[in-house]
Design a protein around this nucleic acid. Structure first.
Lengths: 148, 148
DNA sequence: AACGAAATTGAAATTCATTTTCAATATGGT
DNA sequence: ACCATATTGAAAATGAATTTCAATTTCGTT
């Protein structure tokens, strides 16, 4: 389950700074995890990785920082069809919209970018007088390997 | 938040029967709720309504029956952008795919049907060799009334 | 209509992710 | 360095959903 190409060291940090949000030791660790993540991570995975950078980080701080980044529109939250329980997964926001396919058997996540998704968003905005903030298209099914 | 037009009294019941699944007093109550629901309901709302039909229904039975219907592909589970906590919402399956827009301020749910959604599903299937079982497109934003 | 294997149920306990609380500590502008 | 304010950690609380297991119910067979 690869994440979008672009890694951006320091990007989240500078975004928060320019918005006047305090940077702490703990936040810096979590931000760097999110910036370099190659997978969709859940809170406990982020905690584990963050503790390798800074052993003194609590679970709640991870949740609070993820909440902050979500509110700031810097990361997106995914459910990935709840294939592995009710946990949430996170990915940094790239300008480009994409959908997530999750294999119901092996849990593999495939990302896919399509202009149809953009088109759907604009259609919805105009036809339903609804101003779109986030669109999440999640698909469950079977990947090439897992089709029987 | 209106649900698709078609009400189908006895539809779920007969589907389960023809698949050799036992009907119980409790299941009948829950099925009739799901068949006639005009809103997206969560487990506790379904429990409350089911108890009006049959006072002796437990919470677990609701969860178990919803699980059964989900596995049988007779209902769909929605998150509705988690605007009201982490609970899940349920709707009976209609043949027609549609997306859900949830207002982040007032919680209103708008449904929208589009051939783009179908097209997106087939594109994904062919281009990614992924066999689609369920597609869930959920949109968060602001409805006409709540745009500031 | 009764029998009985197999499925279903309820009640309590449990799980698991996430949130709240609040006192102690750290941040960054002055 | 000061200090108002924001952030943190630890523990407790929440809340949805699941597991467990003995008691009950269903429905095909007799």
């Amino acid at each position: 389950m690869p994440l979008p190409e672009t890694e951006s060291p320091g990007f989240l940090q500078s975004k928060l700074m320019e918005r006047g949000i305090r940077l702490t030791r703990q936040r810096r660790a979590i931000l760097s995890i999110m910036e370099t993540a190659k997978q969709h991570l859940d809170a406990s995975q982020i905690l584990r990785k963050a503790r390798k950078i800074d052993a003194e980080i609590d679970r709640v701080t991870v949740y609070r920082t993820l909440g902050l980044l979500k509110r700031q529109g810097l990361i997106d939250e995914l459910d990935l069809m709840h294939v592995q329980g009710e946990r949430h997964f996170y990915e940094r926001r790239t300008g480009r919209d994409h959908l997530h396919m999750t294999c119901l058997r092996c849990g593999k996540v495939i990302e896919f970018e399509s202009h149809l998704l953009e088109k759907l968003k604009t259609t919805v905005s105009t036809e339903c007088s609804f101003s779109v903030v986030i669109a999440r298209l999640e698909i469950g099914g079977y990947c090439q390997n897992c089709r029987t």
